[in-house]
C-alpha cells in the first residue's frame, strides 16, 4: 500500500484533468475555438510517448553494458506501451486536425515526427520478431533501439526548426502554445501531463511484470 501513492496521484490527476478540462473557461481563439480543450488530452499522449521511449532507450543502453535479461524486458515493454500511447496521440490528433484544419493529416513537421517515431518502433518490433534466439534478439534490437532513438530525437528537435511553416503553435508565425495558454488552462494542462505520464509508467510496469511471469513460465 505504501507504494500505491503515486498511482493514486496519477489517477486523481487524470480524473481531474478530464473533468476540469471540460468545465474550465477557455479563451475563444480563432479557428480552434472550443476544440482547444483537446490540448489536455492530445498533447499529454506525446509527453507520455517520449517518456516511455526514453525509458526504452535507457534500458537498451543498460542491457548492452551488462547483458542482463531484465533490461531487455524493460526496454521492449516500454517501447510497446509507448507505441500504444503514440497511437492514441495520432487518433486524438487526427480528430482535432479534422475539425480545426479540415483534414485528418497535413504535411507538418510535428505530425511527420510522430509518424517517424511510430514507424521506427514498428520496425523495431519487426526486427525483434525476425529472430528466435533470445540473447541475439536482445542484443541486436538494443543496438537498433539506441540508434533509432537518437535519429528520432534529431527528427523531432532539429528539423521542425528548418521547416518553413507549421500549423502547430509556436512555429512559422503561429503563436506559441504556452503563451496562448492562459493561467487557468495551465492549471489543468500541467497536472494532465504529469497524470498521463504516471498512468503510462504504471501500464508499462504492469506489462513488464506480466512479461517476467510469462518468461518464468516458459523456463
Amino acid at each position: 500500500m505504501k507504494k500505491m501513492w503515486w498511482k493514486i496521484l496519477g489517477l486523481m490527476l487524470v480524473l481531474y484533468s478530464l473533468i476540469a478540462g471540460l468545465l474550465i473557461p477557455v479563451p475563444d481563439l480563432p479557428v480552434i475555438h472550443e476544440s482547444i480543450r483537446n490540448i489536455f488530452y492530445h498533447v499529454c499522449m506525446w509527453f507520455t510517448l517520449l517518456t516511455l521511449l526514453s525509458i526504452s532507450a535507457v534500458n537498451a543502453v543498460r542491457y548492452l553494458s551488462g547483458f542482463e535479461d531484465k533490461y531487455d524486458f524493460r526496454s521492449v515493454e516500454a517501447a510497446s506501451t509507448g507505441l500504444f500511447f503514440g497511437m492514441l496521440g495520432l487518433l486524438t490528433g487526427s480528430i482535432w486536425a479534422r475539425f480545426s484544419w479540415g483534414t485528418f493529416w497535413t504535411n507538418d513537421p510535428q505530425l511527420n515526427g510522430a509518424a517517424v517515431s511510430m514507424l521506427i518502433y514498428a520496425a523495431y518490433f519487426v526486427l525483434r520478431g525476425s529472430m528466435n534466439d533470445s540473447e541475439k534478439r536482445a542484443r541486436i534490437s538494443a543496438v537498433y533501439n539506441i540508434f533509432a532513438f537518437i535519429m528520432m530525437i534529431i527528427f523531432l528537435l532539429v528539423l521542425p526548426k528548418l521547416a518553413v511553416g507549421s500549423v502547430h503553435p509556436g512555429k512559422g508565425g503561429n503563436p506559441m502554445a504556452l503563451v496562448g495558454l492562459d493561467n487557468t488552462m495551465r492549471m489543468v494542462f500541467y497536472p494532465a501531463v504529469i497524470g498521463w505520464i504516471i498512468i503510462g509508467v504504471w501500464i508499462y510496469q504492469l506489462k513488464l511484470r506480466l512479461k517476467i511471469i510469462n518468461e518464468l513460465n516458459e523456463i
Partner: peptide
C-alpha cells in the same frame, strides 16, 4: 550500421529497407 543489424538478424534483404527508411528520414528531409 543498419546493414550490420540486418545482416546479424539473418534476414538481410527483407529487413534492410524496413529498418533503414525510418532512420533515414531526418537526413533525407
Amino acid at each position: 550500421l543498419v546493414a550490420a543489424i540486418a545482416w546479424r538478424s539473418g534476414h538481410n534483404f527483407s529487413l534492410m529497407a524496413i529498418l533503414s527508411f525510418p532512420v533515414m528520414y531526418p537526413f533525407m528531409i
